[in-house]
Design a protein around this nucleic acid. Structure first.
Lengths: 239, 239
DNA sequence: CGAGGTCTTGAAGACGATCAACAAACGTGG
DNA sequence: CCACGTTTGTTGATCGTCTTCAAGACCTCG
């Protein structure tokens, strides 16, 4: 299994050899997008969905005055843009946080999967349902948690997701983001992000130097975050 | 077309006679849930998905101390709980805001649809993708809009959704909710909901008496809300 | 080595929370 | 049909979190 998506989906249900082969062959080409550039823009109706092979990307929506809200972070193995297969035009943009490598999957191929591979279709569908579950989790954070809780939650979520695909271990990971961008994800100001990071540091819950985040007290962080990982559906069972 | 779901899905793509017949026959039974009761609770793994035939329901998640965040409102014709077909256990609860009539659809039937009805599968999948798009829209509101903007958005969204299924017209609709529950949707306190409603009233944008909400100045309300209805995907095209 | 972006800190002020009290509406039983 | 209790809506006062503005320190990269 040398494919990040197969790794990831394999955590949720068993994939047959045939299904794995289909996933390996789905993509027609690889596209590279530079840090800061958009992969897809709000309003477009792309003919391909893209799978993130390498790098970090965000889903985001912007308001007329330029204010931004990041609605999700994506990492290697995420089928970032599966939504655009059926949902057109795009209601949001996908932007590269770092340089990204993306595998393009034509919508015609996905349509064929829905016609010939019911089990794989359900797995892909599930993938988008988990995106929705993560959205709900973020809504709770944005609506009901103070800044420290929101940040703590994000750290817990990202660590578990990265760990699940082998991109983090030992409670530490690289998070290549500016505090300004983090503000757009947490729904607070850049200045306050800075103060909130310091608050978690002072409480002995994390260290954060450059891009490296280390969780020093997972239980403490989980308490501040009121975090329960069930929504990530990281356990395998037949669908 | 005497079925609310057929009405609704018909706005997004054409349904064949056969597909309409399948939808009519999917449901094995009707369940009634009283106002305030839960339809499904967080943590459960139901064997049926439920389709809301009559009444208002919410999706919600609660924190350990009892604070609540409503993540969506659902109305007649919404396939509220399609998520639980593949996403188990439930990451959130579904609760009845008013007395609700729900049609139960066994997951085995849905599985059969995915195996025999690719087009209908895509339509159902799309339905959950639109739920996700609405979630993203709410995240922008929760993260980046002041209370007045959040409330204005909700009113715009609900009006358009109700109108699309024939449950509202002439810029007025019944919204049977308490200000406390509204607070749990908007991520603010109950007291502040009250003041925010008054603010929109004073600005001449709405009236709100008892459960009846009337939009007096749609353009004005849309501006306060920074509302763009694209995300609701209310237009029909082949999927 | 200089320049632009990013991080950090301080001070003032806004928005919304919380607490408290009262008014109005609603439902229920007498 | 009215009396009463409970829930919901309304208002005022005070407090806290987070915003905004501003300035300086650090750092990275050409």
């Amino acid at each position: 299994m040398a494919h990040p998506l197969i790794d990831k989906l394999g955590h949720r249900d068993r994939l047959s050899e045939n299904e794995q082969a289909i996933i390996m062959e789905m993509s027609t080409s690889i596209r590279t997008v530079e840090a800061g550039d958009d992969v897809v823009k709000e309003g477009e109706s792309p003919e391909n969905s893209c799978l993130l092979v390498e790098g970090w990307a965000t889903r985001n929506k912007s308001l007329s005055d330029g204010r931004l809200q990041i609605t999700a972070f994506h990492i290697a193995g995420d089928f970032v843009d599966l939504h655009s297969f059926l949902l057109k035009p795009m209601d949001h943009s996908i932007s590269a946080l770092t340089r990204c490598k993306l595998a393009l999957v034509p919508h015609a191929t996905l349509k064929k999967v829905t016609e010939e591979q019911p089990h794989l279709t359900r797995i892909f569908w599930l993938n988008t349902l988990i995106d929705a579950a993560i959205h709900r989790e973020w809504m709770v954070a944005l609506g009901r948690l103070p800044a420290s809780g929101r940040l703590a939650r994000l750290i817990c979520e990202l660590y578990l997701r990265l760990e699940a695909v082998g991109l983090a271990k030992a409670l530490t990971f690289e998070f290549p983001i500016t505090q300004t961008a983090l503000a757009d994800a947490l729904g607070i100001s850049g200045v306050h992000v800075n103060r909130t990071i310091q608050e978690l540091r002072r409480a002995g819950l994390i260290t954060w130097q450059g891009a490296r985040v280390t969780i020093k007290d997972f239980d403490g962080l989980r308490d501040v975050a009121e975090f329960d990982p069930t929504y990530l559906n990281l356990t395998s069972h037949p669908r």
